[in-house]
Amino acid sequence: MHLELIALIVAEYDPAIDFFVNVLGFDLVEDVPSTTNDGRPKRWVVVRPPGARTGILLAQADGERQAAAVGDQVAGRVGFFLRVDDFDSAYARMTAAGVEFVTVPRDEAYGRIAVFLDIAGNRWDLLGPSSPSGASAG
């Protein structure tokens, strides 16, 4: 058993695809036409980190309730966790690409961490191995 997909509500498909693929480096796994339960057109869009089994279904908000959840899927908490092998390289690449980090990198018992916002404003942890010195950056 494994977790196949999680849904992330986004305002629009194409900017979300651009963020996850061109900024974070995810693979675009699927982008196909689909329909809503009541027959309106939509897209089935799945992105996934390279080599991962679990993907993110980018679901364009449909209606006021869903639009209100864009950027607040987990009520302001960090709700998504992106683990990388080379934290410093990923942090530098993401910063250069304009990703907004809301904390500076720091070391915790479980590794190096910094909180960033996705295109919708959801909070993510960028996680990596502890720095060799174990000292916090700032």
Rank of each mutant, 00 (worst) to 15 (best):
M1Y: 11
H2L: 02
H2M: 03
L5C: 07
L5W: 01
V10Q: 04
V10C: 02
V10M: 00
E12Y: 05
E12Q: 14
P15W: 07
P15T: 08
A16F: 09
F19C: 13
F19L: 09
F19W: 10
F20P: 06
F20C: 05
F20T: 07
V21T: 15
V23E: 08
L24N: 11
D27K: 00
L28V: 07
L28W: 06
V29W: 00
V29G: 11
V29K: 05
V29T: 11
E30G: 03
D31H: 10
V32T: 13
V32W: 04
S34C: 08
T35H: 15
T35C: 09
D38L: 14
K42Y: 00
R43G: 14
V46N: 12
R48A: 06
R48L: 02
P50S: 14
P50D: 15
G51K: 06
G51S: 13
G51D: 15
R53V: 09
R53W: 04
T54Q: 09
T54D: 08
I56C: 05
L57C: 03
L57P: 01
Q60E: 15
Q60W: 04
Q60R: 12
Q60S: 10
G63Y: 07
G63E: 11
G63T: 10
E64A: 14
R65I: 11
Q66V: 02
G71T: 10
G71N: 08
Q73V: 03
V74G: 09
A75F: 13
G76F: 00
R77D: 14
R77Y: 05
R83Y: 00
R83Q: 03
V84F: 04
D86W: 01
F87Q: 12
D88I: 03
A90E: 08
A92P: 13
R93K: 06
R93M: 01
A96I: 01
A97E: 08
G98I: 03
V99Q: 09
V99H: 08
V99G: 08
V102D: 10
T103C: 10
T103I: 09
V104S: 13
P105R: 05
D107R: 04
D107F: 02
D107E: 13
D107V: 09
E108V: 09
E108I: 08
A109N: 14
Y110S: 13
I113C: 12
A114Y: 06
A114V: 05
V115T: 14
V115R: 04
F116D: 10
F116W: 05
D118M: 01
D118G: 03
D118C: 02
D118R: 01
I119Q: 13
A120E: 15
G121A: 06
R123Y: 07
D125G: 04
L126A: 01
L126T: 01
L126F: 01
G128W: 10
S131I: 12
P132M: 04
P132W: 02
G134Y: 04
A135Q: 13
G138H: 13
